[in-house]
């Protein structure tokens, strides 16, 4: 079993782990670092449960293997404690009942945060399109879509006031 040292920055902290090159990023985070908020739903890049922020943009952590992450910067759901957009999304997700079993929620939030920041003018159709790569089996998506729209609208009104 060939293991090599993988250096990466996770939630702001530089770290070095020993891992096989074949270990995917999600297992690296979940196993080596006990960051179990990143979930595995399909391990082939479709369901979105494992979505993390990798070098500043959402990525599937299940299909990115450890070797390729050497030198990368990763932010997981555990790494947004100080983030105002994530705080607003969390509040909106609760208010809109946008989660049930909670399994898709971390990946959903990371995707939603990217949508809110990247597409400030997104309407419902665009939000649905952008969220389509994150599957939820519980909610029927209504709460999720409304929560994202709620935060988009909050930010638009705040911007208008400013």
């Amino acid at each position: 079993m060939n293991r090599s040292a993988i250096s990466l920055t996770v939630n702001g902290a530089a770290t070095t782990l020993e891992a096989e090159p074949r270990t995917h990023l999600a297992d690296l985070l979940r196993g080596g670092m006990l960051l179990t908020g990143t979930h595995l739903g399909c391990e082939h890049g479709v369901c979105g449960a494992c979505t993390v922020e990798l070098d500043g943009a959402p990525a599937r952590s299940c299909i990115t293997h450890a070797g390729a992450c050497d030198g990368a910067s990763v932010r997981t759901i555990e790494g947004f404690a100080e983030d105002a957009v994530m705080a607003a999304l969390r509040a909106a997700f609760t208010a809109e009942h946008a989660l049930q079993c909670g399994y898709c929620t971390p990946g959903m939030l990371i995707t939603a945060r990217d949508v809110v920041l990247r597409l400030p003018e997104a309407d419902e159709a665009r939000v649905r399109e952008e969220m389509a790569g994150n599957l939820c089996r519980c909610t029927g998506y209504r709460g999720i879509v409304r929560a994202v729209l709620r935060v988009l609208e909050q930010r638009r009104s705040a911007a208008a006031v400013a």
Partner: peptide, 21 residues
């Protein structure tokens, strides 16, 4: 009533079987 269980899931603190070692 808003859900009592939401907070842990929203922060990635849910504990599913694969999270336990």
């Amino acid at each position: 009533l808003l859900r009592k269980e939401d907070a842990r899931f929203l922060h990635g603190r849910g504990r599913y079987v694969a999270d336990i070692t």
